[in-house]
């Protein structure tokens, strides 16, 4: 395993809705190595999505810092962090979040429109990742014409197409049946192994979490236990019983 590239220092996040303050993160210290596959588990409302958003540069912490590849993400202004994000982070969502009027091909191409690439370069890149997620035969289908599993493959292809160093996935199997979930998780594992991507997977499904090299547990805005990979098998057994 390589050097850590993601550093999270004493991260706090307080949401304010009206007069109500919600302390979503209460001092998180966390590191990830380049090429590491980490899963983040915890009950609903424990702050998983909040942490993921802060690491991916989607939101600003109330205090603390996020450093990725030597750059302090949490200090960047919005336009800068947006540019950084489009180059370095790929997102996979629970509800796929594809643009319904665009074809699978066009959805995957979308993030590349922000780059200075020729149409031919874009095309090659898009076809490569769609091949990777085994959807070369669905290029002209729109999301509505694809199954949930296929849509999530398109979502993963879109996350991969810019060749980001970090992939974040927030409950990517939350809306899929067990069989399809397994296929998606197989795909993510393959992506991790063959492309050596750093992956942060948020889930509350222990089976999904078990695919990661390292499991991190969250509770009420704090990291509780870090579970080592060895315990995965136990977890699987528990589910199957």
């Amino acid at each position: 395993m390589s050097e850590p590239i993601i550093f999270v220092d004493d991260l706090h996040k307080v949401y304010r809705t009206g007069s109500v303050l919600v302390r979503a993160l209460r001092g998180i210290d966390f590191e990830m190595a380049a090429g590491e596959f980490v899963s983040l588990m915890g009950p609903s409302g424990s702050g998983k999505s909040t942490l993921l958003n802060l690491i991916a540069g989607l939101d600003k912490p109330t205090s603390g810092r996020v450093t990725i590849g030597g750059q302090v993400i949490s200090d960047m202004d919005e336009a800068t962090v947006a540019r950084w994000r489009s180059a370095h982070v790929g997102f996979v969502f629970q509800f796929y979040h594809l643009i319904p009027v665009l074809t699978a091909y066009e959805n995957v191409e979308l993030p590349l429109l922000l780059f200075n690439m020729s149409a031919a370069q874009r095309r090659q890149q898009v076809l490569t990742v769609l091949e990777l997620v085994s959807l070369s035969h669905r290029l002209t289908h729109r999301p509505g014409q694809l199954s949930g599993g296929e849509q999530q493959r398109v979502g993963i292809a879109r996350a991969l197409v810019t060749d980001p160093m970090l992939i974040v996935a927030d409950e990517p199997t939350g809306d899929l049946d067990t069989h399809t979930s397994d296929e998606i998780l197989d795909l993510m594992q393959a992506v991790h192994e063959s492309l050596e991507k750093t992956i942060l997977l948020v889930t509350h499904d222990p089976r999904a979490a078990g695919r990661a090299q390292r499991r991190v547990q969250m509770d009420s805005g704090r990291l509780s236990v870090e579970t080592e990979a060895l315990q995965i098998d136990n977890c699987k057994l528990q589910i199957e019983n």
Partner: peptide
């Protein structure tokens, strides 16, 4: 995967 030299430019 081969990635072209991705220069950021929004035009």
């Amino acid at each position: 995967m081969i990635i072209a030299n991705c220069k950021l430019k929004i035009d």
